[in-house]
Amino acid sequence: MHIPDGILPISVNAGGYAATAAVTWYSIRKIKQKENPREGIPKASLLTAAFFVVSWIHIPVPPTSVHLVLNGLLGALLGYYAFPAILIGLFFQAVMFGHGGLTTLGINAVIMGLPAILAYYIFRLRKLGSKESPKQDGAFDFLAGAVAVGVSVAIFVGILVTNLPADFISAAAERAAIYTMAIAHLPLLGIEGAITSLLVVFLRRVRPGILDGV
């Protein structure tokens, strides 16, 4: 789901950078409003490492394969720290492995980072009920993970389909390939939801303190 260099027109890449700059500024502002902004950094740093490495874990979905993203998990556990964390993870993925690119760093941060913030708000909905319900908590954990990656795929497809280059021999074939890839990502919604849910339920039992403030 990382768009590499040379795929999108310059205007879209510039727009991606502008949006990323705005969201990063807003995220840092939100982080600064916390009582102790430094407190969340170790957790964010470790999850950045997880996000960076996890793109190498390929799950075969015939005829293709998809890789884990974990942006929902980052959103649920980190809140507004998730956006800068994903931005840094994407930067290292682009520089070291060529996953994505430097010109598309902004647009990729929008694709994966914005749904992470959405996941944070979905995750917070678990507190709405008057009484504590582990089942309800688990459902919102799952939703946070699944919806984040689903929205990422939707943004990814939307950007690609509206920016097909004119020099293609067959725009229809490329469009079909994009939709095939999007459908191949559907199982990932369940997988990411399950991973997020399992990990958060585990943390809730073992170290509930880590979920404080989120």
Binding site: I41, P42, S45, L46, A49, F52, V53, W56, F97
Partner: peptide, 19 residues
């Protein structure tokens, strides 16, 4: 790939330990 990943992971762990 393993070495490069380890370098970045170690950098993140170091940052976490620092804070």
């Amino acid at each position: 790939i393993g070495l490069m990943s380890a370098a970045v992971v170690w950098g993140s762990v170091g940052t976490a330990l620092y804070f």
